[in-house]
């Protein structure tokens, strides 16, 4: 009994120390919000195209029944990191043959058009989310955010913030490679 009592302070110190070790880990982001959407079906949404653009809009039905995974990117012309991310997304589309869909979040159509004219349009479809309601359905907290959706329409992966820089790009392409490997029995 005395031994157990003597070991108590050590036990408590180990518990607290273990907690510190976990909490002080530099790779842990305390602001990270776990997404409820992962391994769920794509949420219900139906967005009209960006006015004045010759690109179709985006709806839930465009994300189900695809032969392979597609990438959904939430962007806006007013979002500065999106400009940096645009180059990365364009490269993914041109080099890796990624199918990219866009949600233009709370953006003025004319500004979105000018932005895409200036930088080029890597998106296959773009839905114009003028009031941000589709953004809420996707559970986004800001722009940019990027999702990987399986061919069958299951959300496999979510990246919050711009996919820019070697670390982020490596993480994203790993997730994409995994999504492609476990594609679907339908193909």
């Amino acid at each position: 009994m005395t031994r157990i009592l003597a070991a108590l302070p050590i036990l408590v110190a180990l518990m607290v120390g273990g907690f510190f070790l976990w909490g002080l880990n530099p790779d842990r982001d305390p602001n990270e919000i776990p997404s409820v959407l992962i391994s769920q079906q794509v949420p219900e949404f139906d967005l009209a195209p960006v006015a004045g653009m010759n690109i179709p809009g985006l709806a839930r039905t465009d994300l189900t029944g695809n032969p392979g995974p597609v990438v959904v990117n939430v962007f806006a012309s007013w979002c500065v990191p999106c400009r940096a991310e645009h180059a990365v997304l364009t490269r993914m589309v041109e080099r890796d043959g990624v199918r990219l869909m866009g949600i233009n979040y709370k953006d003025k159509p004319e500004e979105a058009r000018a932005w895409l004219d200036d930088l080029g349009n890597p998106y296959e479809r773009i839905g114009s989310d003028l009031n941000g309601r589709a953004g809420i359905e996707w559970g986004i907290s800001g722009v940019p955010e990027t999702f990987i959706v399986s061919g069958a329409g299951t959300v496999l992966y979510r990246y919050v913030g711009p996919v820019v820089g070697p670390e982020a790009e490596a993480e994203f392409s790993t997730a994409l490679a995994e999504a492609r490997a476990t594609k679907a029995p339908r193909t």
Binding site: I33, N131, G132, I136, I140, S141, G142
Partner: peptide, 19 residues
Amino acid sequence: VVCQNENIDSSNAGVARDL
């Protein structure tokens, strides 16, 4: 979800307004 630890009633973030 933007200014975490603030409720949406007192947050000025765009998403908070939408919510």
